[in-house]
């Protein structure tokens, strides 16, 4: 199974691009999409989910053109949008039955499948209550359940951990890991640790373009040997920032412990192993 994106662009007006000349091949497993706000993550996901049409470029799944035949992927698509709503007057069963109809699936097992999904996302006890009474996290879990209704082969999760508490986030990550064997899973998040723990591959985006892609090790290698920590006076922080790329600061009384990325570390710095977050911040925030 292979999702191929070739020179995909989404142009809003003369100057504004949501996505610009984007090329990537996605194979089975979990791809983590990282990028700041406005990087084009949601635009890319909407195009793959057939909600949005690109201005130019090619998008195929196993050789099938998804731009001209969106129904090909829709049959096997599970999509959790970043900002989605619910019909407040329906309960979880009714809502999922409705979504199942949208996806064109049914049959005698649908009810028990919905029940198992509700158990899996920990909503079975509240399933008969109107969704309008649910908390933000519960609605998010309904969103996750609907994405799994139709034996999806391509799963797209746009910021899925928003609104989930720490325990639910861990549970969600485990769920995604279990699903990854037979599917393409594309997952975007602002929280690097969500991606770091589960993604097989990472794509970092900025201003609608792909900056880098590869395995986590490939991406981290770009800043390997360049991550250091040092301690300075609080008053010297701004001057230090002007010269070095600081990725993290921790206050310690009147001192500051700084983590920074540099080819020319200051004296008394300690080298540290690079993380995905270091690489992400360096690639998206620095001018290099």
């Amino acid at each position: 199974m292979s999702l191929v994106i070739q020179n995909l662009s989404k142009k809003y007006n003369k100057e504004k691009y949501g996505l610009r000349d984007y090329s990537l091949t996605i194979e089975k497993g979990i791809l983590g999409l990282l990028g700041p706000n406005g990087a084009g993550k949601s635009t890319l996901m909407k195009i793959i989910a057939t909600i949005s049409k690109p201005t130019s470029g090619i998008l195929t799944l196993d050789g099938n053109d998804l731009i001209h035949d969106p129904n090909y992927i829709r049959k096997m698509l599970g999509y959790l949008p970043q900002d989605f709503g619910v019909y407040a007057n329906l309960n979880a069963y009714e809502f999922l039955t409705y979504i199942a109809a949208m996806k064109g699936v049914g049959g005698p097992n649908l009810k028990s499948r919905i029940e198992m999904l509700l158990e899996g996302v920990n909503l079975i006890e509240a399933a008969r209550l109107p969704i309008g009474t649910y908390s933000g996290g519960m609605k998010q879990r309904i969103g996750i359940a609907q994405a799994l209704l139709n034996d999806p082969k391509v799963l797209i999760f746009d910021e899925p951990t928003v609104g989930l508490d720490p325990e639910e986030r861990v549970r969600f990550r485990n769920l995604i890991s279990n699903l990854a064997h037979d599917c393409i899973i594309i997952l975007s998040s602002h929280i690097v640790s969500d991606i770091e723990t589960i993604a097989d591959a990472v794509a970092i985006m900025k201003s609608g373009t792909l900056i880098t892609t590869g395995t986590q090790a490939d991406v981290i290698a770009q800043v390997e040997g360049k991550v250091f920590e040092t301690i300075i006076d609080s008053t010297a922080l701004e001057a230090f920032r002007a010269k070095q790329f600081v990725v993290n600061t921790i206050r310690q009384k009147d001192k500051m412990r700084l983590r920074y990325i540099s080819n020319q570390p200051v004296p008394s710095s300690t080298p540290f192993a690079a993380t995905l977050e270091d690489a992400y911040l360096f690639l998206t925030k620095s001018n290099n």
């Binding site: 198992m116 996302v121 037979d182």
Partner: peptide
């Protein structure tokens, strides 16, 4: 919560009707 595994979920069939 129970663990979800797509392969262990009851199989569903294609239904392109509009009754639901």
């Amino acid at each position: 919560p129970k663990t979800i595994s797509l392969t262990s979920l009851p199989a569903i069939t294609t239904d392109h009707g509009i009754t639901a």
